[in-house]
């Protein structure tokens, strides 16, 4: 089914590309060969490097802050009560709209890009982790207590493993948002990065050239999702085959 659908999309793509002509949509093999040229000339890596860097730092910080923060607000009720509304408001605000302000405040530099990627990552991680903690089976917490468990042991044995599936979902969404955030940061803060490469090509109406990096981004997103799904299955064998 999946392969059938992929083949159908590809066929449709070729049909449109061949009937409308290369200005609107280039056939996939042309895009791929242009991408190959771009990589061979070193242009691709030159633009990928900075984006990979802000992505690694921003998303890394987002996860490193988001998971512990989510665990805390999920477990400590007054903290959840205080932070719930601000987090939801922040999450529903289109972060894109905040990018210009961030650039003015932090400056047109890579630090502001890191902040943007961080913000895109951290919110879904926090929200999913906290909701995972809150849905941990309270009966199991009580079971641990009945055997005289201390609070930190309850965390280690029940709360963290119990919220692991939700944490992994948070990471999956967070990292995909991070990819989007990194490219958007390049769009706005300009002059370097993968997103800027897309803009460069687009401004020259070179759709074939612009679609190459877009392909790579889509593939990276799919890879992240698949990788985390596998990790989730490895880390939680108790859920059985799903």
């Amino acid at each position: 089914m999946r392969f059938g659908f992929a083949a159908f999309v590809l066929a449709l793509w070729y049909f449109i590309a061949l009937t409308l002509g290369g200005l609107f949509l280039a056939p996939p093999h042309v895009i791929v060969s242009r991408l190959g040229q771009s990589i061979a000339s070193g242009e691709f890596m030159q633009y990928l490097g900075p984006t990979a860097f802000i992505l690694a730092v921003g998303a890394g910080l987002g996860v490193a802050v988001g998971v512990p923060f989510g665990l805390l607000i999920g477990r400590i009720r007054p903290l959840y009560w205080v932070t719930e509304a601000p987090i939801n408001i922040f999450y529903t605000t289109p972060l894109v709209a905040l990018i210009p302000f961030l650039l003015v405040i932090v400056g047109f530099n890579y630090q502001s890009k890191i902040v943007i990627v961080f913000l895109f990552t951290v919110l879904p991680v926090v929200i999913n982790t906290a909701s995972g903690v809150r849905t941990v089976d309270h009966d199991l917490v009580e079971l641990s207590r009945s055997f005289c468990a201390k609070e930190w042991t309850v965390w280690r044995d029940v709360i963290v493993p119990g919220s692991l599936p939700a944490i992994m979902t948070g990471l999956r969404i967070g990292l995909i948002h991070a990819l989007v955030g990194a490219v958007l940061a390049d769009f706005y803060a300009g002059a370097s990065g993968f997103g800027y490469l897309i803009i460069l090509y687009s401004n020259r109406f070179d759709i074939t050239g612009a679609l190459g990096p877009v392909f790579v981004l889509a593939a990276a997103g799919a890879a992240v999702a698949a990788l985390l799904k596998t990790a989730q299955r490895r880390l939680s064998p108790w859920q059985g085959e799903q």
Binding site: D139, L140, E142, L143, S144, R145, S146, F147, C148, A149, T153, D157, V158, P161, G162, L164, S236, W238, Q239
Partner: peptide
């Protein structure tokens, strides 16, 4: 809760992420 009592629950309350032996050993671990 006291160390000289142990409770068996109606709804079992096993840790889903631990094997049989580790669930049996859980009270001892705690």
């Amino acid at each position: 809760p006291r160390p000289d009592t142990a409770l068996v629950f109606q709804n079992f309350r096993l840790l889903p992420w631990r094997t049989v032996e580790d669930n049996v050993a859980y009270g001892l671990r705690l």
